[in-house]
Computed example of a mutant assay.
Amino acid sequence: MTQEIHGTVAAGFETVRDEFAAFVATERSDYEGQLCVHVHGRRVVDLWAGDGADADSLYGVFSSTKGAAHLVAALLVQEGTLELDRRVTYYWPEFASEGKGALTLRELLAHRAGVVGTDSGFSRQELADDRQIAERLADQRPFWRPGTAFGYHGLVIGALSGEVVRRATGRTLQEVYEERVRALYGLDFFLGLPAAHEPRFRSTQVMEPTDRQRALLDSLPSGPHTLAAVAFNRHAAEPTDLETLPNDPLVRAKGPASVGGVASARGLAGMYAAAISEVGGRVPLLKEDTAAEFGQFHSVGYDLVARAHKSYGLGFQATADTWYPVLGVGAFGHSGAAGSQGFADPRSGVAYGYTRRRFAFPGGAGVENERFVAAVQLAAPASG
């Protein structure tokens, strides 16, 4: 039975609704997802589908959390509290251990630090707590010479940048985000889910891999001592089950800045809209120069962890190169392992958010985003 599509689209964005409906019609009957888009600060797409889901449902967004974390970093750089070309040790002296003393904040944000994990791994309790992650990483010998190469710091980049934020401001990254971004705009994008909102959370569903997905998974490098195993904590005494991480109440409550965010599509899109557009009578959070610098290519090429071509700005993925070539140069955002996607395209004024309940292997941005983003970009110029 075809699921009903709920929500609205503005005139000119009917094709986006058509694409969303066409995708949902081909999915399993238990599909749940939300899609929200703003253009120049105006909400133009607000859609959802799924039994028991609505526009206010909240989902674990995995690495899309990194977008919120690094919006905080961008704001602090913009106001001069942080300086990109200062050494990390200026803020965090203990980080100098094991040859990391020359690394700059710019290099750290571009996934060039080389401390993607620790030799012995993290416990689940440690992964939920950015302070504990940072303390362990300060003493860790890097897995490559810092600054000479890059690799995805998937479970730890938010803790690394978050410790710099804490040392510079005296407050956690989560606290700065709550005050200066989430609460200010009333966003349903939490780094630390309050207990009052727990009933809105929809636990991540893990889908069995298809034969094609299983073949892909089997072809990936494996082994307990590979760089990928270290980066995703698969070598620990308690190997991390990434697929179910947001289902842990401790992870949701603490909101680790790499993977612990909980959001709706409205929350994702709303945050990126606030970053680049006037929203609610407020000027954009980011000045044009700041958005351009954080969206600029900083690490492009062979990712040592992913063993594939990747592109990063500062804390954000360089979204046009990484996922959607139809976007303008300088688009920045971040995907999440269960399929979520959020980004801002300053050139078109598009701010995009997508959430999905299921985790489908091998993880990463849901492929359906490609058709949604293409439809949005075609409609956006006419709306502007």
Rank of each mutant, 00 (worst) to 15 (best):
L193A: 07
P199E: 11
F150N: 05
G151T: 02
G170K: 12
D188W: 00
R171I: 02
R200P: 03
A183Y: 03
L160K: 01
P194I: 09
R200Q: 12
D211G: 10
L220T: 07
F201W: 08
R214Y: 10
R167T: 03
V181I: 15
G186Q: 06
G151H: 08
G170F: 00
S222R: 14
Q174P: 09
E178C: 06
E163W: 06
D211K: 14
M207K: 14
A159G: 05
E198K: 09
F201E: 07
Y185S: 05
A196D: 15
G223N: 08
V206Q: 05
D218V: 07
E208Q: 14
V165Q: 00
L155H: 01
F190K: 02
Y152G: 00
A183E: 14
P209M: 01
L217M: 13
G158S: 07
G223C: 14
R171K: 13
L173M: 10
N233I: 03
H153Y: 03
L191R: 02
L193P: 08
Y177P: 00
S219C: 12
S161I: 05
A228P: 00
T169C: 11
I157A: 12
G147N: 09
E175S: 11
T204L: 12
R202Y: 00
G170D: 10
R182Q: 15
T226M: 11
R167N: 00
Y177A: 06
A228G: 11
D188R: 08
A168Q: 10
V181F: 05
A231V: 02
V164T: 03
E175I: 06
L217H: 12
H153Q: 01
A231Q: 02
S203F: 09
T204R: 03
F201G: 03
G147V: 06
E198V: 12
R182I: 11
